[in-house]
């Protein structure tokens, strides 16, 4: 069984990280997790996002969940909010598309246009 001791170590390490997080401009990734999103495959997408953000130590990125955005047929939907930028809405997301979005958009600042609602709807 994994020891609670390891959690105590995480707590120690975290003490130094809080200041760092606050210094950076926050990027928010929001995943729709209502019945429609979950049924369409939002859970593996969210898992992939959390995994990538954690693995790459993207300390200025938060991943949060929301309810039904109102476009159930386009789920899984992922919205990205960057400081001073317009919201970008990705639709019909899959775990495969996540690395590209992280690399190009979250780290590089350039939205992956082909996965956005504008491109998919037209």
């Amino acid at each position: 069984m994994k020891s609670l001791e390891e959690l105590a170590q995480i707590r120690e390490r975290m003490k130094n990280k809080v200041a760092l997080r606050e210094a950076n401009g926050e990027i928010r990734i929001v995943v729709g997790m209502a019945t429609c999103g979950i049924a369409a495959g939002a859970r593996p997408v969210l898992n992939a996002l959390v995994e990538q953000v954690a693995k790459q130590h993207l300390d200025n990125v938060t991943v949060t969940q929301t309810g039904c955005i109102g476009m159930c047929r386009l789920e899984p939907i992922v919205e990205v909010f960057m400081p001073n930028e317009e919201r970008v809405t990705y639709v019909k997301m899959t775990p495969d598309k996540v690395p590209e979005v992280i690399e190009q958009h979250i780290k590089g600042g350039k939205p992956v246009v082909k996965y956005t609602i504008g491109a998919v709807e037209n």
């Binding site: 994994k2 390891e6 959690l7 995480i10 707590r11 390490r13 975290m14 809080v18 959390v50 954690a54």
Partner: peptide, 26 residues
């Protein structure tokens, strides 16, 4: 977990989530 982590470490910190995943997998 909360009792060990105290108030300053949220349960959704990435390293805590990784711990949770590993603990359950194990």
């Amino acid at each position: 977990l909360r009792a060990v982590l105290g108030e300053e470490v949220p349960l959704n910190d990435f390293s805590v989530l990784a711990w949770i995943r590993e603990a359950l997998t194990e």
